[in-house]
Amino acid sequence: MTRYVIRRLLQAIPLLFFISLLLFVLMRTASNPLVTMGGKRVPRPEDRERLARQLGLDKPLYVQYVYWLIGNDWAKIDMDGDGVAETPGDQKGVLRGEFGNSLVIRGKPAWTVIKERIPRTLLLMIPAEIIILIFSLVIGIFSALKQYTVTDHVITGISFVGYSMPIFFIALLSIQLFAIKFKEWGLPALPPNQMFDPQVGKTPSQIALHMVLPLLSLTFVSIAGYSRYVRSQMLETMSQDYIRTARAKGLPERMVLYVHALKNASLPLVTIVGLDIPLLLAGAVVTETIFAWQGMGFLFIDHVSRGDTPVIMAILMIVSVAVVVSQLLTDIVYAWLDPRIRYD
């Protein structure tokens, strides 16, 4: 097992390296941070030239990538534009734990910009993942136990619809219904956006209240998909020999269901949850945009349009590492839950 983990980690290194190169080239060629530095109007040509030089954006792409990767404190930069590089660089580079400085807020490390946002995104994602797990298990099992009843079919139907919905459509519908219509009808309405009501302040109850609609949008699609999956796994497990044996031994039906069947049916769900992380992160981009939840997704959209390569790269690399790690964890948990599986 240890060997397997080490091998996977070693494999992840070239993988992340390749991803960073691909994304860096795409980002740097696809966007221009200098243009948006002037506010309402485009900066004067002289200022664009100077800022490009000071920020190292006039260097060839591969040099920029190398600086991003290993820093530029071993090289000199031409800050004053006389053609002679005289000022030593101060970037340390990603490999030495620095993502560089943001281009939108020059002088602010990209990591500082992101650091404030990560807890906000996690605040949405962790409860979302828990809700997804609990609800898809409960609904899936319930549906499997009630196989071919009206309830089962209604659930199946709804989950199909849910699975076919874009997250933003659910978000818009839920805003329309729970925030706008409810208010019209005089019912207790939910807040349609932001993390808390500024006039009340950042109290836990405020944040909880503001989390309801984003969570609904984030979890609905996943629950719809996974509950169907749990149902079919459950049905398949229940038709297995060992369940029949357990029943034949005279174990109580509850025991058979909840211990044997459930355990085996939930196994594949672990894999899915692992794969779900990227999906949730992407969902967060849309959800955070609609609900003005100022997390990483919101930051991503804001800064991608202003060409803030260091911040965008930092977000994407953090996400990629999260994905790699979560896949690895999934494998480990899977092996731990199912002793038949060995990785070597």
């Binding site: 925030a179 706008i180 208010k183 019209e184 005089g186 309405a189 939910l190 807040p191 349609p192 009501d197 006039q199 009340v200």
Partner: peptide, 12 residues
């Protein structure tokens, strides 16, 4: 009525 929610318990 539409915006009341934003006002809510405000310490205006």
């Amino acid at each position: 009525t539409q915006v009341e929610k934003e006002v809510v318990v405000t310490a205006t």
